[in-house]
Nucleic acid binder design. Structure first.
Length: 259
DNA sequence: AATCGTTCCTGATAGC
DNA sequence: TGCTATCAGGAACGAT
């Protein structure tokens, strides 16, 4: 599942691979206004990828669960679940592939419209201030993990990094957000920043579908402490890692050291 | 205003 | 072995 580190990795890849190229054609036909424009910049906000064009428009992507943005040559074999092909100058294609079809691409007319679309998101998880973070947690009675994944409160964290950060901070995912003490909040925020940074360093977690823009896997799954490790030993205390369901999501934690 | 249930879709997997 | 039924999962949406 692409979360902040995965989306950031793709964003950085795209910066190197497609900036300066011109959009020749989109198949199937969509976002007509983007055709003929040149790519001038690539950005990321929350889990969204922004491709800025020289005509003022923006191509916006959300990869949701299984989306991929792949940069390929025309001659390369079609990718699995390839949904949209953006033909670029220089014999290059930007391919949007998505097994489960939850992801999307939208054409946004200008920056003002983009801002309007993005205003619902909370501060970025890797740069949020301690003050805002503490305040954000104290206004909710929901389980802390559910709040961490609420993009309107704090943007970029998904199921994997929420579980890993809570484990590092020794906090149970079930705890009510407003029951977390100030010291625990400090610890939790530094844990979040730590796991996101590690995720970026290892080029994301390729748990199931995630690939970078060149179709390569990330490595962060090799460093999971609790995620996807039900029944295995907690690396911290030797307890047995448990899987529960919180707000409909599989949630991994150590019931011994996460209190 | 905050929170909860439902929905989208299909690959993977469990069960027979 | 091969078929069928069930499930996971981010976030928009409507309801409470």
């Amino acid at each position: 599942m692409p979360e902040l580190p995965e989306v950031e990795t793709i964003k950085k890849d795209l910066e190197k691979l497609i900036v300066g190229k011109k959009i020749l054609k989109i198949d199937p036909e969509s976002a007509e206004a983007a055709v003929g424009a040149k790519i001038v910049k690539v950005g990321r906000r929350a889990k969204l990828i922004e491709i800025f064009l020289d005509n003022g428009g923006i191509l916006l992507f959300h990869l949701k669960l299984t989306g991929r943005l792949l940069v390929r040559k025309n001659s390369q074999e079609k990718d699995n679940w390839q949904r949209i092909t953006i033909f670029l100058s220089g014999g290059t294609e930007l391919r949007f592939s998505d097994a489960r079809k939850f992801g999307w691409m939208k054409f946004i007319k200008n920056k003002k419209e983009l801002e309007k679309m993005l205003e619902k998101f909370g501060p970025e998880a890797n740069t949020i201030s301690p003050t805002d973070f503490k305040q954000m947690l104290s206004t909710s009675r929901r389980p802390v993990k559910v709040v961490l994944m609420d993009q309107a409160k704090i943007a970029g964290i998904g199921n994997i990094y929420a579980a890993e950060a809570l484990h590092l901070a020794k906090i149970s995912p079930k705890r009510s957000a407003n029951s977390i003490s100030p010291d625990e909040k400090e610890k939790l925020l530094s844990s979040i920043k730590k796991v996101l940074k590690a995720g970026i360093k290892y080029r994301g977690a390729s748990d199931q579908y995630y690939l970078d823009a060149l179709g390569k896997k990330g490595y962060y799954q090799e460093h999971f402490l609790v995620y996807n490790r039900a029944g295995k030993k907690c690396p911290e205390c030797g307890g047995v890692i448990k899987k529960i369901v919180l707000a409909g999501r599989g949630t991994y934690y150590c019931p011994i050291c996460q209190v």
